[in-house]
């Protein structure tokens, strides 16, 4: 019987991943066939590239301790959004005056648009994300201690 054969295949959990991968592959192929998708021009947090800026590729559009103009989803929920974006620590200010090639180092230093999104406007994402890391670490360390 075909049904009993299918049910036997599904009930073996070694086949489960193959089944899921097959479903994903079929969906991805269908996705490509139906592809041309519109790209909405009205994006949140749009990126502006200004190659002459010493902060390139993360030009901030504001001076420290003033509000930079950023496009957030709910401005009324984050009344102070824009201050973190414009902030430069003294170290990164000195770095930006010294050389125009340290933009990536400066953006990882405190302040900037990525910190604004990760800590302020979408802070809950980061909370969940670090919780996932914490849970995975708990599983790993429990099994490690049990095994040793």
């Amino acid at each position: 019987m075909i049904i009993s054969r299918i049910s036997r295949f599904i009930s073996n959990f070694d086949n489960l991943l193959a089944l899921f991968a097959g479903a994903c592959a079929v969906l991805a192929v269908l996705f490509v066939l139906f592809l041309p998708l519109p790209y909405s021009e009205d994006q949140l947090y749009p990126k502006e590239i200004d190659e002459s800026s010493p902060l390139y590729p993360y030009e901030r559009g504001g001076t420290p301790f003033e509000r930079a103009d950023i496009h957030v989803q709910y401005p009324e929920n984050s009344p102070f959004a824009g201050y973190v974006t414009a902030y430069l620590t003294p170290f990164s200010l000195a770095l930006s005056r010294l050389t125009p090639h340290a933009g990536t180092t400066i953006v990882a230093h405190p302040g900037g648009i990525l910190d604004e999104i990760l800590y302020n406007t979408r802070g809950l994402d980061t909370v969940v994300e670090t919780t996932i890391l914490f849970i995975a670490f708990a599983i790993g360390s429990y099994l490690f201690r049990k095994g040793s």
Binding site: Q43, D125, E129, I132, L133, F137
Partner: peptide, 22 residues
């Protein structure tokens, strides 16, 4: 391709690393 994308990649990457670790 926006600044939002750079902020979303980080959670995606960390989830992958965490599950790989467990």
């Amino acid at each position: 391709g926006t600044d939002l994308a750079e902020a979303l990649i980080l959670p995606g990457l960390v989830v992958g690393i965490a599950e790989l670790l467990a």
